[in-house]
Amino acid sequence: MGALLFYILATVMVVATVLAITGRHPVHAIVYLVTSFFALAGIFFLLLAPLVAMFEVIIYAGAVMVLFMFVIMMLDLGHPESGVRPGWRQWFPALVLSAVILVSLLLAAGSPATAPRTGGEGVKEFATLLYGRYGVAIEIISLQLLFAVVGALYLGRRR
């Protein structure tokens, strides 16, 4: 059951991402990406990481994508008739590089697989580790967010 759900969610995620990067309208790309991130949140939930799944929905599909949508609306970029689709000159090197990645992936995926895992890690172990061993990292991340706020305010002011 869980495996079937994983494959369904993986298919949804790949198809939504392909539709997002091939469309010409940025707003449609944002909506397809929200779909993709919801599927990824489902995959995280299946992989026994419910807290990361919730943060994925709240931060990525909520905050970050709405920020993108906000900037698109503010800069008035949402005109599909004036949008240009990239030509084959842009597509060709990108497709060659991704073909190289996928072929090397297929070669690497032939190696045999895994042992079953043991036990489940709950939210409590996650929180203990987060604020215990990685407490300094939390402080540094909060400082980084403060720097980002100051930098965005500096760049966005009118002069």
């Binding site: 995280f44 990481a49 807290l51 990361v52 943060f55 994925e56 931060i59 990525y60 905050a63 970050v64 920020l67 993108f68 890690e121 996650f126 580790l129 987060l130 990685y134 990292a137 991340i141 980084q144 967010l145 720097f147 980002a148 706020v149 930098g151 965005a152 760049l155």
Partner: peptide, 17 residues
């Protein structure tokens, strides 16, 4: 999972800038 959370915080800072 902790590092996934770190990536998320880093991404939100990067996207805002």
């Amino acid at each position: 999972q902790v590092f996934a959370l770190m990536i998320m915080a880093m991404t939100s800072a990067e996207v805002s800038l």
